[in-house]
Design a protein around this nucleic acid. Structure first.
Length: 264
DNA sequence: AATTGATGCAACCGCTCATTA
DNA sequence: GTAATGAGCGGTTGCATCAAT
């Protein structure tokens, strides 16, 4: 089933927004609120696509947006969250008040990816010598199958188990094959190059001890509160211990679930 | 001063999911 | 149950700016 375009693109402005367009959009949304993006251009008198209006508002015009000057602490948090969540920028942005997914994505691609790749290289060297059994977490591109866990017990031929996050229970559950209560498994042979693929988010996490959704559902409201209490002072959602290099890369066994629950 | 290449970022595009009729 | 629509997400593109030559 195809989709009709979100709007007729004929005669629409494209490219950078002008200050006047910003004013019109800001005034309209201030007056009428967000939503109904498709109708906004017509009602506000903008020669823009509704999608474009939404993007402009969310990434630039929203009053609560912080722009630029990403602090070292925020940087650290982005790196940690990316390790956990992969390229799910909106989720990551949701943990950084005032930051947008687009900004974080750009910041990652321009500033952090090189550094992380370098660090990952050095980490891989030490990780390869570790005899511990872990399940590695892969971010796949599939939507309904948000995670694939690779059992590292076996050697050259692995069973891939597909999981999805359960929005109700605070757990990650096996993804059933259309309610047949059968966990989907697929065979896949890994080559060494898989370890180097940037398409996968690989992390050393034992799922028995770790709940993603605790992290994902945390609204970090205390963070916002503390920000307003202390002008321009960053209060972040992790402890000094969590900021240590080896906290997240170390065996999760070393950190009980209560450690993660200690997120403010 | 002019040119070229690299970089950063705003914006666009195409896709999927959720909702509604 | 199905199709249409609205909204959101992540990848990619293209332009503006800056640095190096």
């Amino acid at each position: 089933m195809g989709r009709s375009p979100c709007c007729s693109k004929e005669g629409l402005n494209k490219g950078a927004w002008t200050a006047r367009e910003d004013d019109i959009l800001r005034d309209y949304i201030t007056l009428h609120g967000e939503g109904r993006w498709r109708n906004i251009p017509k009602k506000a008198g903008l020669m823009r696509c509704g999608k474009s209006c939404r993007l402009r508002w969310l990434n630039y015009l929203r009053p609560d947006i912080k722009r630029g000057n990403i602090s070292p602490d925020e940087e650290e948090l982005i790196i940690r969250l990316h390790k956990l969540l992969g390229n799910r920028w909106s989720l990551i942005a949701g943990r950084l008040p005032g930051r947008t997914d687009n900004e974080i994505k750009n910041y990652w691609n321009t500033n952090l990816v090189k550094r992380v790749q370098h660090n990952q290289h050095t980490t891989n060297i030490s990780a390869n010598s570790s005899p511990n059994n872990h399940q590695r977490v892969f971010k796949t591109k599939a939507i309904n199958c948000s995670k694939v866990f690779r059992n590292l017990d076996s050697h050259s031929h692995h069973k891939i188990q597909h999981f999805k996050t359960n929005p109700d229970a605070a757990t990650v559950v096996p993804m059933d094959d259309h309610n047949n209560n059968k966990t989907i498994e697929s065979d896949h042979t890994y080559s060494n190059s898989d370890n180097n693929s940037s398409d996968f988010m690989v992390d050393l996490i034992n799922l028995e001890d770790f709940s993603f959704s605790d992290l994902l559902t945390s609204d970090f409201s205390d963070l916002s509160a503390s920000n307003s209490d202390h002008h321009h002072q960053q209060h972040l959602v992790f402890t000094e211990e969590m900021l240590q290099d080896n906290f997240w890369t170390a065996d999760i066994h070393d950190h009980s679930a209560s450690d993660l629950n200690s997120f403010p």
